[in-house]
Design a protein around this nucleic acid. Structure first.
Lengths: 157, 157
DNA sequence: CCCTATCCATAATT
DNA sequence: AATTATGGATAGGG
């Protein structure tokens, strides 16, 4: 994207001025762009959910004034519910999450993100994403096995 | 990931096709498309939340195989809780591992996922998500300041 | 099979 | 016109 907000995060001074020349500019124009981008995002989401029938998706945006805007297919609550999963009654969870700390990239935790260059950051991000998805999948699995089975193939344990 | 070698037979892509609204082409290409569009959507969302710090945002999507993917600012659970009515948010969100290399909240890295129960896994998932988003933002920062040097104005400054 | 990334070309958007 | 987002093909990892 273009830099709609050119100098938002740059600190050129020594610290005297500290910041704040950020989002103040023009409250009204900020709101306008906010609406535009929000609509753009929802539009994308709309196209996305049209990709395939089961493309459940939900977007929730809270405006700076805490006014909620949302888009969901089939609806927000359904998706949120699927995402959060059934959190009640967790009988002995002896979940085996596999090797979440796989060998390949284990040394990340000992480093500072500030010291990583672009490539490394990208890898780190990917790793985190994978990690999160692994956990998320476990949660989902757990939930699925507790609710009725939508008859997937591969009912391994 | 790089092209190992270019065979004599160059297969040129056909380029982006004309907006077809059809839903399922073939399972495999659907999956690829899903991945691409999801990245596009999340990227937009990232830019969005980058622009409006105080506009909380959450996106949840389920892949064709019901695998959950999400993006959240500051994190999904916070936004969902705000949306649903702020109920047990404090219970789910009492931990913030946002600062990757900080000492305070390193607790999770020292634990085994196998020892976590269902609720803890949920928390862990949220934390990872926050972490990932933070890193994602860093990546974007780097990306912006890295592609430079072409005579187009406005990049940063 | 499932998923991600990359190259090329082009549609879509700015 | 310039930039971005995306489709098709394809390589590679799991």
């Amino acid at each position: 994207m273009q830099e709609t907000e050119v100098n938002t995060t740059r600190r050129w001074g020594t610290g005297r001025k500290k910041v704040e020349m950020k989002k103040i500019e023009s409250k009204s124009s900020l709101i306008v762009t906010f609406c535009k981008r929000r609509n753009g995002l929802f539009k994308k989401a709309s196209e996305f959910s049209n990709l395939y029938d089961d493309a459940n998706l939900a977007i929730i945006v809270l405006s700076p004034n805490q006014r909620p805007y949302s888009f969901g297919h089939p609806d927000v609550n359904t998706v949120v519910d699927q995402y959060l999963g059934d959190q009640e009654s967790s009988e002995r969870n002896n979940m085996d999450c596999g090797n979440i700390n796989e060998e390949g990239e284990a040394c990340w935790w000992e480093r500072s993100v500030e010291d990583m260059d672009f490539k490394e950051l990208e890898k780190f991000k990917a790793s985190l994403e994978t990690l999160k998805n692994n956990v998320a999948m476990k949660v989902q699995e757990k939930r699925r096995t507790r609710v009725s089975t939508r008859d997937f193939m591969g009912g391994f344990s």
